[in-house]
Amino acid sequence: MKRIIHFGVLLLVAMLLSSCGYNSLQTQEETVFKAWADIESTLQRRADLIPNLVATVKGYATHEQETLQKVIEARAKATSIQLSPADLSNPAAMQQLQASQGALSSALSRLMVVVEQYPDLKANQNFLDLQNQLEGTENRINVARQRYNEAVEMFNGSIRKFPASLTNKFLLHLVKKEYFKAEETAKAVPKVTF
């Protein structure tokens, strides 16, 4: 019986030591960084698909130079903005990245609507494959964003909760991270006038 109490007390002390959050806060921050790396790799994946897509569409949709040009420009702008881990706590940097990626999303979805007018293109195997890859990538971006935001929510909550908040205040000095929101323009259905 006494051994059980003994054991219980030891357990309590051990739990107290591990509940100050010193380790868990850092683990959670790493989770945020890892989730962000996943977002970046999916965004890169999308950027890599675009030259191929543009080349394929160009052969068929000869009257859509302007739309294609917009996609190319938006891609160039989006790939020029990269965030370092420290930037994840910087609202302005995050805002900039969201805006550029959102602009690329809307340019792409406009292109996909426009190509609906070209039956030859829509029957092209290469184009259909690219379309699948693009959709798959957009879906991955969504999933990665959702997981990143969950990780951020967890982390931001943790650094404010007692007693981990004290550990952070005096020892770790970790800063709250920014969410990666979906751009409103990306969600809106593009209008096309014929």
């Binding site: 259909l128 494959d129 379309q131 699948n132 890859q133 959709e135 798959g136 990538t137």
Partner: peptide, 11 residues
């Protein structure tokens, strides 16, 4: 089973 291959299986 890439996006491309999955798409072809479906299509």
């Amino acid at each position: 089973l890439t996006d491309l291959v999955s798409g072809r299986i479906i299509r």
